[in-house]
């Protein structure tokens, strides 16, 4: 087991180093942020000064190493537009996105599990068919269509704040987070419902469930105690992996609802070619993604010893 973990961690580090290198290479390919473009003309001597100030006159590899070193010390520099501290911008945006992600996960687990259990328990009935149809739609409809629909129909109504925001009205965070979280949760809720239905049906055919029924346990106990616990494992692992996908979805959801999280920050930074903001966010996304998949792999190997030999 120790050997497997070491190998898997080494692998993760390799992937992260290569990915950060690619990101930096990509940044170089985008071009010089201080060059004259369109209406913006920058005198050469000012370009020189700016490049020197931001360390862009150094050779490529020196810049790459400096950037790695700064990443490790959470020094992300200042953004190109207003010279704000990028670390501060992230410190505001990350908690908002974390809240959104946690809410979305809570919603998708509650809805997905309930729907999956109901469908499995009443297999082949009208309820089951209905849930299957809804999950098919939930998976098929793109996130941004769902988001646009919800914003058009619900924002500004009842407890949901209007979008675009007005600066004069303070809205508590829990009202702000509901619609984006629902938008983000729908696809995964549908996935979880399907997963849960399948694995529950499989478990319900197992011998120990028959035994439980045979010894006269109530249906509630058979399902709630024996079938449920054993069929929930695939859902747990799926939820772990889906967190990474959630980050991609957050980009769109946050933009639709103008939710001040990492995703919206990234989209705005891209439209402004604001590299010092883009790079740490993408690196952060890659790190989370790799860390999660490594964790899931190790968890699998812990649960299933055969994988360690691979």
């Amino acid at each position: 087991m120790g050997k497997f973990i070491t190998r898997r961690l080494a692998h993760a580090v390799l992937v992260i180093v290569a990915a950060t290198f690619l990101i930096y290479l990509g940044l170089f390919a985008i071009g010089d942020p201080f060059a004259s473009s369109g209406e913006k003309t920058v005198p050469p001597e000012i370009q020189e000064a700016l490049r020197e100030k931001f360390g862009m006159d150094q050779p490529f590899f020196v810049q790459y190493l400096t950037y790695l070193q700064n990443m490790f010390t959470f020094d992300f520099g200042v953004d190109f537009e207003q010279r704000r501290d990028v670390a501060d911008m992230l410190a505001n945006a990350v908690p908002a996105t974390a809240r959104l992600a946690l809410f979305a996960i809570a919603i998708e687990i509650i809805i997905g599990l309930t729907a999956g259990i109901i469908a499995a328990v009443s297999q082949y009935t009208f309820r089951d068919v209905l849930i299957t149809v809804i999950t098919t739609l939930g998976i098929g409809i793109p996130v941004f269509v769902v988001g646009i629909g919800l914003r058009a129909g619900l924002s500004g109504e009842w407890i949901f704040p209007a979008v675009p925001r007005s600066f004069t009205i303070e809205v508590p965070w829990y009202q702000e987070v509901i619609l984006p979280a629902i938008t983000l949760a729908i696809i995964d809720a549908a996935f979880i419902a399907r997963l849960m239905r399948g694995s529950m049906l499989e478990v319900m055919r197992a011998d120990y469930v028959r035994t439980a029924r045979a010894k006269g346990l109530s249906e509630r106990k058979v399902i709630g105690k024996h079938a449920l616990r054993n069929s929930i494992i695939p859902v747990v692992t799926y939820t772990g992996v889906s967190l990474g996908v959630l980050l991609g979805g957050a980009l769109i959801t946050e933009t639709i609802f103008e939710y001040q999280g990492v995703g919206y920050l990234l989209v705005r930074a891209i439209s402004q070619q604001n590299a010092p903001v883009i790079v740490p966010i993408v690196v952060f996304a890659v790190l989370t993604f790799v860390a999660l998949s490594t964790l899931v792999d190790i968890l699998y190997a812990y649960l299933d010893p055969r994988i360690r030999l691979h």
């Binding site: 390799l14 290569a18 990915a19 990474g244 980050l247 991609g248």
Partner: peptide, 13 residues
């Protein structure tokens, strides 16, 4: 290894 590196990026990003 190349596929690993590409798959490290969330697809939209």
């Amino acid at each position: 290894r190349v596929t690993d590196i590409v798959l490290a990026f969330p697809s939209l990003i």
